[in-house]
Each structure stands twice: as C-alpha cells, then as structure tokens.
Amino acid sequence: MSEDKPSNVPINSGRRQLLIGSGLLGAAAAVNPGMAFAGWRRGHWGWGHPEENVEPVDWTVEQLRTALDALRDDTFFAMIAFGVPGDDPYSEYQGVSTPYPGGITTRADLYLSGGTDLLVPMPTAFMNQMLASIATYLRLSPMDIPEMASEDVGENGEWILENLDRTFTEYLEGEVSNSVLVALLLNLAATRVAGSIDGPFPSPFANLSWDQKARVFEELENQHSWLRRAITWAIPDWHYREAAPGVLNLMISFMLRVSGFGSYCEFAVFNPATREVAQRPLGWVLSQYAPDAPPSGIGSDDFIGYFQGRRSV
C-alpha cells in the first residue's frame, strides 16, 4: 500500500454508479487488469472483495484516456453493428448479423466518432456539470447494480474507486471529446436498461442483444427519459440546464442517423489528393450503386424524352 494513500472515505453511491454503469471502471480494468477488483470480470461486477494482498496502483490521466478511447471504440463498433449489421463479432454477439459485411467493415465507427467530436462545441464546464448531475441523480435513483451501490468493497476497493474518480475528475478538466461523453452516456443507458451486463466486450452497450439496444434507444428518445432527467437534475447553471436536453437530442439523433450515412458513403476510401475514391466503397457494393466506379460518373444515358413531348408550359 502506498504511503500517500488517502483515507478510506467511500465515494458516494451516485458517483460510484456513474463510474461503473458508464463502463469506465471496466474499461480501465481492461487496460490494466492489475488495477481491477478481484471480482471484476469483463464488465460484470461479481462477488468478492479486491485482493487485499495486491498493491493498488494509481490510475493516471493518460491511462484513463487510453481506456476511455478504447471504450468509445468498443461502444461505437456496437452502435454501427446495431444500425447496419454484418459478419463481425459485434453483430454476431447482438444476435443480428448477416453472412456478408456491414457497417463495421466500412469503418463507419470512425465516421461516427469523428462526427460526434465535431457535432457540438461543448464547453468543459457544461460537460462536467452534466456528469455531476447524473451522479447526483443516480444517488437518489440508483440503477439495478445493487452489489456496487451498497456492498462494502473493502479498503483497497474503496481506494481504487476513489483514485479512479479523482483521475476521472482531472481528466474532465482537460480536453474531453464528445465521442467519449456519448459513449459513457450510451453505456449508462445500457446499464440502466439491462442491469449488470456480462459479455465479451468492455462496453456494457456492446454486450446487449439487438433488441436490448433498441430498448436503450427507446429510453433515450423518450422525451421523459431518466437520462434526460438525470443530466438536468442538478446542473447549477440555469442556461446549461435549459440547453442540456437539446444537446442530448442532437447526439442521440446523430448516432442513429449517421450509422446509415457513414456505412454507405465513400468516407473510408476517399483520396483527398484526387478528390476521388481509391476503390469502390463497400457501401456502394452493398447498395449496387455505380457499378462502374471509380471514377464517379459525370453523366448517364437515362434520358427518355419529355412527358407528353412537352418542352415548356
């Protein structure tokens, strides 16, 4: 145990639920399993206390950033598989797949995360207040992960959570991408809908079936959803509180809409030097668009004539 270990004051249950339900703890543990609780495995909170004889290690902001980026990627793969399923592991695990490639093969996940980052210029204070509000809300209205909300996780466990929380706070004071925020919210919503989620992926959302993913979005699109209440519950800034639902709407609708656009456009094979596709985009193959491309067409022989021979009215 390190000399500068802080006193073992349990962080409040809402904050604890935020760290776990959003997939953050699982993602951190996936990056460095030595940091995990003994009972933690693949995103699922099991039984038992942290190993008392294992020396806890400080999470650094950089480690956390790596973990969160990986969580974001995992979550967005799962999102794309939800929109345009294919023959990839995420599609297969959700129980809805096709024998040929889907959106993940087109790398629509990169399109989605890049687009989300550009979507809204979120002030850091706004993002922090939204997450703090969620934690406050979860304290009053906990999710269905009772073992973490109430169970004594032992001295090391508390220390690990506290350290993670402090590092997360520090991380949020720096540059945080929208895509990470969206991934955390999506995973929170997944945990809220399905409770403790077991599966092969660090992201709780990625471990859901297709039907469960639809239930997550049913909840998110509801004008009275718990997440909408949670993000506005305790935002101190009145203007942020007023703007938060609109920002949430924007992000959710973007996720749903752009899963399709990203999967079928030329994004992955665009060559900016030639302003042309390097090869026929997979989305064009899937939709049987422009069979002779590249290059892109500049005309067609589709002219039939004029309706009733009318050239003017």
């Binding site: 345009v84 039907d211 049913e218 809409r257 656009f261 989305g283 939709s287």
Partner: peptide, 19 residues
Amino acid sequence: PGAAANNLALSDSGIRGAY
C-alpha cells in the same frame, strides 16, 4: 447511397419493429 440510408434512418417514430 449515404443520403438514402440517412433518410431512412431519420425518424421521430422510433425504430420500426422495436418501438
């Protein structure tokens, strides 16, 4: 194709068959 997929996935009525 991207616009076509986008236009089919843009709705206020949830996801067909799910909600």
